[in-house]
Simulated assay, not measured.
Amino acid sequence: MVVDEPGAHRLVTLPRPSPGPGEVRVAVHAAGICASDREVYDGTRAEGYVRYPVTPGHEWSGTVEAVGEGVDPQLTGRRTVAEGFRTCMRCARCREGATSLCTDGYDETGFTRPGAFADSVVLPARLLHLLPDDADLRAAALLEPAAVVAAAVLAAGPRPGERIAVVGAGTLGLLAVQLLAAYTPARLTAVDPREQRAGQALSMGATDARTPDGGDSRFPPPEGGYDLVVETAGAPSTAHDACLLARRGGRVVLTGMFEAGAQGIDPVHLSVSQLTIRSVFGASSAAWSFAVRTFAEGLLDPAPLITHELPLTSFGEAVGLVGSGDPSVGKVLLLP
Rank of each mutant, 00 (worst) to 15 (best):
L101G: 02
D4E: 13
G325F: 01
L172Y: 05
R10E: 15
A31T: 10
V329A: 06
D136C: 13
R159K: 14
S273L: 13
G234N: 06
G320T: 03
A190P: 00
Q200Y: 14
P145S: 12
T171P: 07
D326G: 00
A98D: 11
G68D: 04
G214H: 08
F219M: 07
P19K: 05
C94T: 03
L175Y: 06
H58E: 01
P185R: 07
L312E: 00
A66H: 11
A262C: 15
I33E: 13
R159F: 10
R113P: 10
M204D: 00
G48P: 02
V64F: 12
V71E: 11
G199K: 06
V50L: 05
P302F: 07
T184A: 14
E23L: 10
L275R: 09
A169D: 00
C88V: 14
C243Q: 03
T189D: 04
R247Y: 01
C102L: 03
R10H: 15
A186S: 12
A206V: 01
C34W: 15
L154Y: 01
F85P: 08
A147W: 08
L270T: 01
S203N: 07
R210I: 10
P302N: 05
V191H: 13
A30Q: 10
L11K: 13
Q74D: 15
V268N: 05
S203W: 02
A260N: 09
G330N: 10
L75G: 02
A291T: 08
Q74N: 14
A181N: 05
V81Y: 06
I164E: 01
R197Q: 11
G234L: 07
E39R: 13
A8D: 15
V177H: 07
P6L: 10
C91V: 07
T313I: 00
A150N: 02
F295M: 12
L321E: 14
G22T: 04
F117C: 04
A146M: 06
